[in-house]
Simulated assay, not measured.
Amino acid sequence: MLVSLDSLRILPGSSVAIRGPSGAGKSTLLHALSGLIKPAGGRVVWGASDLTAMNDAARTRFRRDHIGLIFQDFLLFEELNALDNAALCAAFAPRAARAALRDRAAGWLDRLGLGDAGSRRADSFSGGERQRIAVARALSNDPAVILADEATASLDRAAADRLVDDLIGLSQDTGRTLIAVTHDETFASRLDRVLSMAEGRIVDDTHG
């Protein structure tokens, strides 16, 4: 899906980094793109869907069906195993859709190198492994768009590089759009495009 936010246009299947100092509005922009908040002005349009014209329930449905969210904090349930965390959205899905969601979550865990560890509790994994569980959870609904907010910030360099490889590979191999807020220059340098923000505005737009 093509996304348009006022003059900003992001092509389907592309990868975009959003960077800037703390307080520049990076996470706010990501939240507007996901429909978690309404922007103060302008429109957010994914394909033919205008998020700013939707009510809260409609934006929630759109986000559930089309967007996968990854956060700096893994937001896992420690007492649940890896598969139950990755397939968490199945608990809120119609009964007929739950098996497919769990199968898809299991498939992503396998692709991300955790296929043999689905029955282990979340609190037994390293930080990098926990973030990959969160990635599998974000992808379990088969979204066209991945939005990541400082996904590597709490990881050491080796784990961060592994996650960056995973995310870029997913975008390139499956045609998903990847938009990542990051202070990680290594991560940003590997994406197709870098948007720099200051005081709530995009002040630079660099294509790789």
Rank of each mutant, 00 (worst) to 15 (best):
R63V: 07
A86T: 11
N81S: 13
F62Q: 15
F74C: 04
F71Y: 14
G42A: 05
L69A: 11
P39A: 04
L75R: 15
I70F: 07
L75C: 15
G47Q: 08
A57L: 12
F74T: 01
G47S: 04
A90C: 07
G41D: 13
T52Y: 14
R64N: 07
A40W: 13
A57T: 09
Q72K: 00
A86L: 11
L80R: 05
A91P: 03
C89H: 07
A93P: 10
D56I: 07
N55V: 09
G42H: 07
L88M: 13
K38G: 08
Q72R: 01
A87G: 13
A87T: 04
H66P: 05
G47C: 04
I70N: 05
T52Q: 12
A91W: 03
D65T: 12
L51C: 06
V45A: 02
R63Y: 00
Q72N: 08
D56Q: 04
I70D: 02
A90Q: 03
N55S: 09
L69V: 10
D56Y: 01
A87M: 05
A57W: 00
H66W: 10
L36M: 14
L51I: 03
A93C: 03
N55G: 14
I67L: 09
G68Y: 09
Q72L: 11
F77H: 07
R59S: 13
A82Q: 08
A87I: 03
N55F: 02
I37G: 00
G42Y: 09
R59K: 08
E79K: 12
K38Q: 14
R61Y: 00
R61W: 03
F71K: 03
P94I: 02
T60C: 09
D84L: 06
F62M: 13
L69G: 07
L69Q: 11
F92Q: 00
A91Y: 01
R63W: 01
L51V: 06
A40G: 10
T60N: 06
A86I: 10
G68Q: 12
F77R: 00
F71R: 01
Q72I: 12
R64S: 02
E78K: 01
A90Y: 00
N85I: 09
A48P: 11
V45K: 08
Q72P: 09
H66M: 03
R64Q: 03
A91F: 03
A90I: 05
D65V: 10
A57H: 06
W46N: 10
P94T: 04
C89N: 06
T52V: 13
T60L: 05
A82P: 10
F77I: 15
P39G: 06
V45S: 04
L80W: 11
L83P: 08
A58E: 15
F71A: 03
L80K: 04
A82S: 01
A58G: 10
G47I: 02
